[in-house]
Design a protein around this nucleic acid. Structure first.
Length: 429
RNA sequence: GACCCCAUCGUCUAGCCUGGCCUAGGACAAGAGCUUUUCAAGCUCUCGACCGGGGUUCGAAUCCCCGUGGGGUCGCCA
């Protein structure tokens, strides 16, 4: 049974790099029907914080990376590390320096077969003795990591390739522990724009940022999966299920990738377009409520229709607020640009008036009826369609761009449309 | 500096293992056009890469070697 783990340390928020490591572990587990373990490496008491832990758990859940075991906390396993270190000490493989226990690293060549990179060899004598237990009685990262990976039965350690040089040190520890090391797979890092390591200063953003900005978890999941892995064909927009079934370490690349936010935006737009309206409505309602665009007694059907109309013009969930806000406000705020647009043609007044009259007579206010009425006015006045459509759009929405006019009119409803047209007349001289 | 890793369009990548189907394919971005009531979406097209040099071979993006470039690690941090 394959068993992998994600082992973040709660000394900072989860960023895209960490999330991708977690994702690949999770995918490997799910693809192979294995187990995904979550372990919290909180041996650094100074820097570990509860708020980071909470954030990490929340972000993993949001992304959809559920764990089968844990979270286990290293801070609760200190006794275990001490015992294991004591045993190594008793066997004469380590020595003490003050309270610290230090492993005598054998001066030999260490090698292992990386599942992604193949054979990796380290020259003999390229590392010093390794501290196992620090003077304060807590284990070092490398030691706790080895003890836990073994105790928890981890079969595959999938981690960032910045850990390649930790591997020989850990091999030495496994040797001292007298246990078989797990298999290793070092995945390429996500790098900053200048190809150096991702950091807070260099573009590493907390996962929560993406969530708050209105990215769909599935879109980020999809995008992250495609960084360093590909299904082998040309497909880009993939469902979670497709990614799970296609995932393999053999198809993971060796070279680092840059996180292209623009492509993520596109991908998010694709996932929004593919999402069914019901799902979107559910996600959007809290946002609309917060912005006070709707009240608790909102009209579910109308909302669904609005979202359907705005869908293709939106990249992030938050964009729905800007694209579709005019549907909800009781009084349109005309921008200077919009005012100028309405003013520039004296015929506009007549057009709006005639249109109002034509619409007044309508019983049904569906898209077809509205369009017929508009077309009627257009031909009566012998004008180009744009001469009616553009000013009417501005009059009704305060914007020069947006969903199709007839569609939005029918959503707004007869009463509201007439009211807004009336309002706009005041602006037209 | 030492050790280790990596190297295809600006970016993400397919192809590399099992050499010929590659005058290198797709996607994002950019540009042009179509569609059209606007903006999007959609569709079509254009731009654009095998780091360099040596081998091996009838033939190399693919195999080998040497350079070069970039990156990572060298903590009683994780």
């Amino acid at each position: 049974m394959i068993k992998v783990r994600f082992a973040p340390s709660p000394t900072g928020y989860l960023h895209t790099g960490g999330a991708r490591t977690a994702l690949f572990n999770w995918l490997y587990a799910r693809h192979n029907k294995g187990i995904f373990v979550l372990r919290i490496e909180d041996t650094d008491k100074e820097r570990s914080e509860k708020k980071y832990l909470d954030q990490i758990l929340e972000d993993l859940e949001w992304l959809g990376l559920d764990w089968d075991e844990g979270p286990f906390f290293q801070s609760q396993r200190i006794k275990n590390y001490l015992e294991k270190a004591q045993k190594i000490l008793d066997e004469g493989l380590a020595y003490k320096e003050g309270q610290a226990i230090i492993l005598r690293t054998p001066q030999k060549m260490f090698e292992f077969t990386d599942l992604i990179r193949g054979q990796i060899k380290f020259e003999a004598g390229s590392f010093k003795d390794q501290v196992l237990i620090k003077s304060d009685g807590t284990p070092t990262y490398n030691f706790a990591c080895c003890v836990d990976d073994h105790d928890m039965g981890i079969t595959h350690v999938i981690r960032g390739d910045d850990h390649i040089s930790n591997t020989p040190k850990q091999l030495a520890i496994y040797e001292a522990l007298k246990v078989e090391p797990p298999q290793f797979a070092h995945i390429p890092l996500i790098v900053a724009q200048d190809r150096s390591r991702l950091s807070k200063r260099k573009g590493a953003r907390p996962l929560s940022d993406y969530r708050e900005e209105g990215y769909l978890a599935d879109a980020l999941f999809n995008f992250l999966a495609l960084l360093g892995w590909s299904p082998g064909d040309d497909s880009q927009v993939l469902s979670k299920e497709a990614i799970i079934s296609g995932f393999s370490l053999e198809r993971v690349l060796k070279s680092a990738a840059y996180f292209d936010a623009e492509k993520l935006e596109w991908m998010n737009a694709q996932h929004i377009m593919n999402a069914d309206n019901k799902t979107l409505v559910e996600k959007l309602i809290p946002m609309f409520l917060e912005k006070k665009l709707i009240t608790k007694d909102y009209d579910q059907r109308k909302l669904t229709r609005i979202i359907e109309l705005c869908k293709p013009r939106v990249k992030k969930l938050s964009d729905f607020l800007e694209v579709g806000d005019f549907f909800f406000v009781s009084k349109i705020e005309y921008s200077d640009e919009a005012k100028a647009f309405l003013k520039k043609d004296e015929k506009t007044k007549k057009i709006i008036q005639d249109l109002s009259e034509a619409l007044q007579k309508l019983d049904a206010f569906d898209v077809e009826a509205v369009e017929a009425a508009c077309r009627g006015v257009i031909s009566d006045l012998d004008i180009k369609p744009g001469a009616l459509i553009h000013p009417t759009r501005v009059a009704l929405t305060g914007k020069r761009a947006g969903p199709g006019l007839f569609e939005l009119m029918s959503v707004l409803g007869k009463e509201e449309v007439l009211k807004r047209l009336q309002q706009s007349l005041e602006l037209i001289q």
